[in-house]
């Protein structure tokens, strides 16, 4: 009797230990996130109080003169990311349609899809290396044509490479969205005599609209945070961009090139402010995009 009771006690103790291990792991993840946000907040505070509105009103990022304006970097980031997505999104939609509507052969679809998977596995730094050897010489010619100094590295180089990088990711997302459309709907439209174009226009696009928008938001969030390829190709010059053929800089690229050298506390802190802004914007976009996709999938 006693031994049986102790056995049950033992099981209960183990059960408790297991449950607390689960919750400890959960608390670990939550505290990691909390600590991350607190770290950024504490790090950013001195700059926020000291620089305040000058972050937006000033026009120069020049740490040697104690000028910390986020304007050149925000402009560069937005320009490069939105420009890249402007190129990437139509192409990604075309690729997604190609692998779902036009090519019906399962085997070819499979090959194309695994091709896309492999592409999204190419690291950013390899795209940077590729851009340096192919895009940069190309842009050098263009710059010479327009009588500009032929640096080669410029906002347009970064933009083009970023667009190419975003295509596989965006195409894979949009493909998943299109796949959730019920086949009966597509077949019914074909049975009524619609051409593939009419089917796409009347069924796929209206149906998948919110999903495609969500894919765009997610891809934009990723493009905003993209660091290495951009940093290698953009030229890292901090002024407000006048011409897309000029050198520029983005927030993420500035962070990776300058953060280690930021010994001055104010400099260090204002870089963390930029990191916090980037973090906030990309997080909101990522959560928003994913929520829309989840809502879209549960709707079907």
């Amino acid at each position: 009797m006693v031994s049986r009771l102790t056995k049950i006690d033992g099981i209960q103790a183990k059960e408790l230990a297991f449950k607390s291990a689960l919750f400890l792991a959960g608390i670990f993840v939550v505290s990691l996130m909390g600590a991350a946000i607190i770290t950024l907040g504490i790090g950013a505070w001195p700059a926020i109080t000291k620089i305040g509105t000058h972050f937006i009103t000033d026009k120069e990022w020049n740490p040697t003169l104690n000028q910390y304006s986020s304007l050149p970097l925000v402009c560069g980031t937005v320009l490069v990311a939105i420009g890249a997505l402007g190129i990437a999104l139509p192409v990604a939609i075309a690729v997604a349609l190609l692998t779902t509507v036009i090519i019906k052969n399962r085997k070819i679809q499979k090959i194309l899809n695994s091709g896309l998977d492999i592409l999204s596995a190419i690291p950013s730094v390899v795209f940077g290396l590729w851009g340096l050897t192919t895009i940069v010489p190309l842009i050098r010619h263009v710059q010479l044509y327009y009588d500009m100094p032929p640096y080669g590295v410029s906002m347009i180089s970064a933009l083009i490479t970023l667009a190419i990088m975003s295509i596989p990711f965006a195409a894979a997302l949009i493909r998943e969205v299109i796949k959730t459309i019920p086949n009966s709907l597509i077949d019914a439209t074909y049975a009524l005599g619609a051409t593939p174009y009419e089917m796409t226009k009347t069924v796929i696009l209206p149906y998948a609209k919110s999903g495609i928008i969500a894919g765009g938001i997610l891809a934009l969030g990723r493009a905003l945070g993209e660091t290495m390829a951009v940093s290698m190709l953009i030229g890292n010059v901090n002024h407000i961009p006048q011409n897309i053929l000029e050198q520029g800089n983005t927030i993420s690229s500035l962070l990776v090139t300058e953060f280690q050298d930021a010994i001055d506390p104010l400099y260090h802190s204002s870089l963390i402010v930029l990191a916090l802004v980037l973090f906030g914007v990309t997080t909101v976009m990522s959560i928003l995009g994913r929520r829309i996709i989840i809502w879209f999938q549960s709707k079907n």
Binding site: M33, S252, L255, V256, A275, T283, M285, S286, I287
Partner: peptide, 17 residues
């Protein structure tokens, strides 16, 4: 929520943290 936030964070920000 934490997983969502950490997954959306750019890698460079995680490096800074």
């Amino acid at each position: 929520l934490s997983v969502d936030i950490l997954q959306g964070a750019p890698a460079i920000v995680i490096g800074i943290i």
